[in-house]
Deep mutational scan, measured.
Amino acid sequence: TTVKLGDIKVTFDNPEKAKKYAQKLAKIYQLTVHVHGDTIHVK
């Protein structure tokens, strides 16, 4: 599962960890989390 934020891409083996990371980023940057299959976009 890949978390994308602009040019930053972080890949996790564990989808749950990816989701938590995405939510953490979203909170920090006051953005929202969008899940598209294996990719989680923070924008």
Rank of each mutant, 00 (worst) to 15 (best):
L25Q: 02
G6R: 07
A18H: 00
Y21K: 00
D7T: 14
Q30V: 05
T39R: 03
T2R: 02
A22G: 02
K43Y: 14
L25T: 01
H34Q: 11
D13M: 12
L31D: 01
K24N: 09
N14R: 06
P15H: 12
I28Y: 12
L5D: 02
K9S: 14
G6T: 03
P15L: 11
V33Q: 01
K17R: 11
V10P: 00
E16P: 01
Q23F: 11
Q23V: 08
K17W: 09
K43S: 13
Q30G: 15
A26E: 04
T1Y: 14
A22I: 07
K27R: 11
Q23M: 11
T32V: 13
K24T: 10
H34K: 07
V3G: 03
I8R: 10
H36G: 05
A26G: 04
Y29A: 03
L25K: 01
D7I: 14
K19Q: 10
D7M: 14
G37L: 06
Y21C: 09
T39V: 13
G6K: 06
L5V: 12
V35K: 06
H36L: 13
K43D: 08
H34C: 13
T39E: 09
V35N: 05
D38A: 09
Y21L: 06
D7H: 15
V35Y: 13
Q23G: 05
K24P: 00
F12S: 00
K17C: 15
A18I: 02
K9Q: 12
T1G: 04
E16G: 07
H41L: 11
I40R: 00
H34W: 10
T39M: 10
T1M: 11
Q30W: 07
V35H: 08
V33K: 00
G37N: 06
I8K: 10
Q23S: 07
D7L: 14
K17T: 12
T2P: 03
T11L: 12
H36S: 12
V10Q: 04
K4A: 09
Y21R: 01
Y21A: 04
K9W: 13
V42G: 01
V33F: 07
K24A: 11
N14S: 12
T39C: 12
D13G: 08
I28N: 05
D38C: 12
I40P: 01
V42P: 01
V35P: 04
P15F: 15
L25V: 06
G37M: 05
A22W: 04
A26F: 04
Y21M: 04
K9L: 14
Q30D: 11
Q30S: 11
T32P: 02
G6F: 11
Y29R: 02
I28W: 11
V33L: 12
N14V: 05
A26N: 03
K19V: 11
H36A: 11
K24V: 11
I40E: 01
T1D: 02
K4R: 11
L31A: 09
L25Y: 03
K4Q: 14
K20S: 08
K19A: 11
F12D: 00
H36V: 15
T11Q: 09
L31T: 06
N14I: 05
